[in-house]
Each structure stands twice: as C-alpha cells, then as structure tokens.
Amino acid sequence: MTQHSTEISVTACHSALADLFAGLVVACAQLSVSDGDSLRLQLLAEELFINTVDHGFSGKTGAPVHLRLTRDKRGLTLHYEDTALAFDPRQPPPATDDNTIGGLGLALLQGMSQEIGYRRDGNRNIIELLLQETAD
C-alpha cells in the first residue's frame, strides 16, 4: 500500500476544536478511513489538543498546532506537533481513585494506540500515535 497523508493546522484554543474535528473528518474521507476509525482519531486528537491548551500552554492561546494523518500498510498514524511544555504521552498514567478528577487521558491514549512515539525537537513536542485499522 502506498503511503498517503493529509495535514491540518489549528490555533491552540478551545474554540478551534471544531475546526480540528472538521479537518480530521475531511482527512479521513480523503484517505478512505472508516467512520469508526475516524471517531477514534477524533477522540485521540481531542485528548492531545485539550491537554495542549489547558496544560501545555496553561490556557494561553494563539500558538499553532499541526496534525498530519498518514495511512500506510502499518495502519493509521496521527502525527501531532505543538510548541507547548514538554509532554511525553508514553509516561505511566497517574494513579487514580474514585475521587480523582482527570488523569485518564494517558490511559486512553495508551489503550487506544498500537504504538506511541515521542520526541522533543527544540521547543516542539512531536507525538505519533499508530492505530490498527478496524474492519467496520
């Protein structure tokens, strides 16, 4: 299978989440990604994006966030890049209990991804999530 990809850029602010979703829907359609896999990608992108805005930029807005969706013989890869504080999604999820709010995002990313890649390049976080495509 030949590798195909598409790119999306949005501003790091909560109001840009709709544009991020719209871009992913178009990208998934261009790459003939199933509806179920498209929804999984949206959920993962939302988790990364909201964490970028809320924690990586501490609510400050305006910086660009770049996504690229690639489809090849290994599956779907969501390439996510921002200039927020360093964040490695491969770290162990924090211990939670019934009274803990939040902290489930890492478990979600790790549980839904076949592989997670991370590197810090200068001031940029570069995260790659590989998803095995489902047959639906």
Rank of each mutant, 00 (worst) to 15 (best):
L44Y: 05
T2A: 13
L48Q: 13
D88N: 14
Y118E: 07
A22E: 06
A63D: 07
S34C: 08
L108S: 05
L104Y: 07
L31S: 05
T2H: 06
I50T: 07
S32P: 06
E7D: 15
T61A: 03
N123S: 11
Q30F: 01
E128N: 10
V26R: 11
F21G: 04
S9N: 04
D88V: 00
T96Q: 10
L48D: 09
Y118Q: 13
I116G: 06
D37C: 06
V53Y: 12
G36S: 14
I127H: 08
M1R: 07
Q91V: 13
S38K: 15
S38C: 15
G117F: 08
V26H: 10
A95G: 02
D37M: 07
G56N: 05
L109D: 01
G23R: 08
D19P: 00
P93H: 01
D35I: 14
T70H: 03
S38P: 10
S9G: 09
F21M: 14
G122W: 03
N125F: 01
F87N: 03
R40W: 06
S32W: 00
H55M: 06
D82Y: 00
A86D: 12
Q110P: 09
H66C: 07
R71M: 00
Y80K: 04
F21C: 15
G117R: 02
L131W: 06
D98A: 13
H55C: 05
R40C: 07
D121S: 13
S9A: 15
L20K: 03
K60N: 08
Q132L: 09
G59S: 10
T52V: 12
I8N: 07
V26K: 15
L48Y: 13
L131M: 10
G105H: 01
N99R: 09
A86F: 01
H14Y: 11
A84V: 00
S113E: 05
L109T: 09
C13T: 02
R71H: 04
V25A: 15
D136C: 14
G117A: 11
M112C: 10
P93E: 02
A135Y: 06
A95R: 12
I127C: 02
D19T: 08
N51F: 01
C28H: 00
L39P: 00
T61F: 07
F57E: 10
V26A: 14
P89Q: 08
T2K: 12
A16R: 14
L69V: 13
L129I: 09
L108C: 12
L31K: 04
Q110W: 02
L129E: 04
Q42A: 06
L24N: 05
V33E: 08
